[in-house]
């Protein structure tokens, strides 16, 4: 049975979507990711969509859902590599993927995940320094 592979990198899960997702594949991915977050106690999810040529409202909903579900499980979701044409089309469509963090590429996405998951620590040091 065809499935999107999920890679584990330390505390983070990495998914690269290489094909246009049809319904079952997308719903399976959603279920698999949420399962893996709880099983592996992952802190972050990185979804690379640089090879995806169409993001319609169905696909947008899947991405938003994954982010919302991950947040409930205390994990951060970052979507990386959206193509310019896809971004413009999503904006024209009226879709803004609220609640989903974005980054330009995998490298910057991992940086963002580290910042967001270490956020509690960083905020407290920032607050300390501003109190002085």
């Amino acid at each position: 049975m065809e499935r999107i592979p999920i890679l584990k990198m330390g505390q983070f899960l990495l998914v690269t979507i290489q094909v246009d997702l049809y319904d079952r594949l997308a719903l399976d991915l959603e279920a698999d990711l949420v399962g893996q977050i709880t099983q592996l106690n992952a802190r972050g999810v990185l979804i690379d969509i640089s090879a995806v040529s169409i993001v319609d409202s169905f696909m947008g909903r899947i991405l938003s859902n994954i982010a919302s579900m991950a947040r409930i499980l205390d994990a951060v979701t970052v979507v990386v590599g959206m193509q310019p044409a896809v971004a413009i089309t999503l904006v024209e469509l009226g879709l803004s993927l609220t609640g989903v963090y974005t980054a330009l590429n995998v490298e910057k996405g991992l940086d963002l995940l580290r910042i967001k998951t270490g956020a509690a620590q960083a905020v407290s040091t920032d607050a300390d320094s501003s109190d002085d």
Binding site: V79, M82, Q83, A87, I88, L90, V91, S96, Y101, T102
Partner: peptide, 12 residues
């Protein structure tokens, strides 16, 4: 506004 939103979707 559209340009700003599209930029944000791309992660910038």
């Amino acid at each position: 506004i559209k340009t700003v939103n599209a930029t944000r979707l791309m992660g910038a």
